[in-house]
Nucleic acid binder design. Sequence first.
RNA 1: GUCCCCAUCGUCUAGCGGUCCAGGACAUCGCCCUUUCAAGGCGACGGCGCGGGUUCGAAUCCCGUUGGGGGCACCA
Length: 503
Amino acid sequence: MTNPGPAPVAVRHLAIPPMDATMRTRFAPAPSGELHVGNVRTALFSWALARRHGGTFLLRVEDTDRSRVTDEAYAAALEILQWIGIDWDEGPGIGGPHAPYRQSERLAIYAEAADRLRVAGAAYPCYCTAAELAERREQARAANRPPGYDGRCRRLTADERAAFEAEGRTSVLRFWMPDGTTTWNDLVRGEITIDHANVPDFAITRSDGHPLYLLAAAVDDIAMGLTHIVRGEDLVTATPRQLALYAALGHPQDHWPAFAHLPLIIGADKAPLSKRHGEVSLAWYRSQGFLPEALANYLALLGWSPGGDREFFGEDVLLAEFDVRRVSSNPARFDIKKLEALNGDWIRSLTVEDLSSRIAPVLNDAGFTDVDLAMLLAAAPLIQIRMNRLTEAPELLHFLFIDDGAFAIEEAAATKGLGEGSEAVLRAASERLHALAEWTVELIEPAVWGIGELLGLNRKRTATPLRVAITGRMVSPPLFESMELLGRERTLRRIDRAAGIGG
RNA sequence: GUCCCCAUCGUCUAGCGGUCCAGGACAUCGCCCUUUCAAGGCGACGGCGCGGGUUCGAAUCCCGUUGGGGGCACCA
């Protein structure tokens, strides 16, 4: 008795579950590498959607492909999500009513589902080899036919199966896609209809029995009671398959989740974001001195806007106002310049205490291992308006935290800044500053300007030799504040030393 | 190739039929401030891809076209 195959369908999934506290959304990363900006934006939106309405957000790890997933990537993914401020109500580390939340620990559940589909005739064993499939794909492409699976193994008889197995062939379980159409009401794109003629049968298990993405995701979305699925645009054509699986698995249509397909983030040349466009992993941005607040702010802006002119906003605004139906449906280009500008705004919005605590580890990484925290606290305001990235701090504060023994004037700065006439400035400064009653900006500044007047030099020509002598650079934080921070001893020592070199 | 989706300054976007000869931000370029560099202030440059409709009226609605993106895996 051969399988007649599924009856034709005309799926119309237009209902949107209520956007209220009963909502359940998820982020389902496959930790095969570092989470990139696109993944994280999807997570951010899915999280914001649930939080906005007081619903539940869960994290599910799609790690069924053991050849691609590593424990390091898994741990890193969790960690980076936490870093940017995303928390989950159910998932790894927390548990929940549908635990476990790692698909690699739920294999038996998928195996049972796959078996049910096979017994019901909704899926069939397919004995085509990878090489055969690839070849037929090529032929189809060459003949301008759709390259998808051609349904060849749909109605194999028991004898034919036995023959294939005798040949030593292995089989995957392939889902028999019913003829017809699927229409759904996409939260960001509106009504989308796809003809199943363009949706070939697809594998739901590997030949080793391992579940594949579509199966595992469908089974879990049902089991975990998801109501709204936020994912990337790359999955829109997977939706008819997802819905067909729901139906075949017996999930009542009035419980199906709504879908929101986010536009992809692309590079400056409109090509998909990849390494070619610079780094894409979120961890890289963290290592480059970007604040989690700024990243979240920028990522939220890629495709969503709170409306009006507001662009600088935090988690509070996102969580209070995020509306998935306001998400733009066209691909957004990732612009690191804008991220940097936003990062600078965020740096400027921090208290000095907060800023200092974030700078400290960066200084440490740069080799300044025993930074005086009081000194850092005093220096932070000087550099706060001068940085767009935390990683700029070591360069800016180099003169202050470097060991005196290691301090050196950059060659270019010496050439440009310690030219003719500078020795006179340095010697006079040494003398006058030595005599100062108190080492404060209030006294240092007039003393230095007085030297300029005495020597007939403008402020720039007065300040530059001192700046170079003290900071070793042509560019530095404000001179007098820097001198005050450095202290009288160190300042005078550097001036005297430069006076010997310069002139 | 085919199916699906998309289309406002270089970029991200506001705009959801009249209040738009299109607003903001980033970038770029000037000017101001100024001891360097920034930050800040002011200003400039710059856009509704194209063609048809619908309408008294379109950036906003419809059709076509062009361009772009995505899918068509024993990846997810």
